[in-house]
């Protein structure tokens, strides 16, 4: 039995690494620019927003929900941060206040989602789709429909563009790691720690695996679900701030369509949309793959970034179909086993 578990574990990792390798080698051959250091740094920077959002949405997905509002929440957070910071002329303090306001707003939205989904028993995708519409309106209300620029060189700029590690390679090319990558890594580590080392993480998995059973061991489903949705929205806010910082302005269209990309990342990362199953490493793997595909689309001339949407749909469908097929096959095996057990019990009687 132990070997079985071990092999299935290595199986997942072997599968992931294999896919990444295949994609990279294939791209490296067809597009020499792909495997340059500069481009790899570029990819990592590119996925930092997806990665943060994927880690956050993982919490919502683990309890069996979904958060389709993250794209709009990201836009909202950028807008709030800029508008608040503008009051104080983008001084460091006011920037921090703006950032804090944005994140608090995101968390409140998450709690509101949790209330509607758990207390009123409305399906999560409807709630988050509807609120994303409301949020879109709210952004326009706040910003008046135009983009909000921030002062270059202020703290807002730092969120994404500050250079943390910078040195010149022997080939003479610069190697830079920016703040956004650092935030992503720190956030991912925190999420991993929370999910795997705290009682809160245990409760999240328990609710997603079997809500009734979770209630019977004294878990407050409402409170913990709200927290999960709040983390999802909060992560979307952080992603939105990075996005705002790197594009150098806040606008209502920023982050549009990110919910689809993040969802794809999670599905590709092997996260069970029914809840209870999935890891941070899976989410990051998914974000990595999505980032690479997005990168490919921008690198290769004949492909347009817009094609991404096409691939997005195709990949989600294919991965889901494969996983459903695998699951039914294993369930069939389990069914056979259950039958054997039932027969053994019949013999006992």
């Amino acid at each position: 039995m132990k070997e079985k578990i071990l092999s299935s574990l290595t199986g997942v990792w072997a599968f992931r690494v294999l896919i990444l390798l295949i994609v990279c080698v294939f791209m490296g051959i067809s597009e020499p620019r792909f495997l340059t250091i500069g481009n790899i740094v570029n990819i990592i920077s590119y996925i930092s927003v997806y990665g943060i959002m994927a880690c956050g949405m993982l919490f919502a997905v683990l309890i069996g929900g979904l958060d389709l509002s993250i794209g709009r929440v990201a836009a909202l957070s950028g807008t709030i941060a800029c508008i608040v910071a503008r009051v104080g002329g983008f001084s460091a303090t006011w920037c921090l206040i703006g950032i804090a306001c944005a994140i608090v707003a995101g968390i409140l939205i998450g709690y509101f989602h949790g209330f509607l989904i758990v207390k009123l028993a409305i399906p999560s995708f409807v709630v988050t789709l509807a609120t994303s519409y409301v949020i879109y309106g709210a952004i326009t209300l706040l910003s008046g429909g135009s983009r909000v620029d921030f002062v270059r060189g202020s703290l807002m700029d730092t969120i994404s563009n500050a250079r943390i590690v910078e040195f010149t390679l022997s080939s003479g090319k610069p190697f830079v790691i920016q703040m956004n990558v650092v935030i992503f890594i720190v956030f991912a580590v925190i999420c991993w720690y929370v999910l795997s080392k705290t009682t809160f993480g245990r409760r999240i998995y328990a609710i997603g695996g079997n809500t009734t059973a979770a209630q019977f061991v004294g878990i407050n489903v409402f409170r913990n679900s709200c927290a999960a949705y709040a983390i999802s929205s909060g992560a979307a806010c952080i992603g939105g701030l990075i996005l705002m910082s790197s594009t150098s302005y806040a606008a209502q269209t920023l982050g549009a369509g990110y919910e689809g990309m993040v969802l794809m990342a999670l599905i590709v990362g092997g996260i069970n949309l029914a809840g209870g199953k999935g890891t941070i490493s899976g989410a990051i793997f998914g974000a990595l793959l999505v980032g690479i595909i997005a990168n490919i689309c921008t690198l290769v001339d004949f492909l347009n970034l817009e094609y991404l949407k096409f691939f997005q749909g195709l990949i989600i469908l294919i991965v889901c179909i494969i996983s459903v097929i695998l699951e039914t096959r294993s369930r069939r095996g389990k069914g056979r086993k259950a039958k054997q057990i039932a027969e053994m019990q019949a013999q006992d009687e």
């Binding site: 817009e306 991404l308 096409f310 749909g313």
Partner: peptide, 8 residues
Amino acid sequence: ASGFLFFG
């Protein structure tokens, strides 16, 4: 997913 696909 198929919605993405059709838009694409």
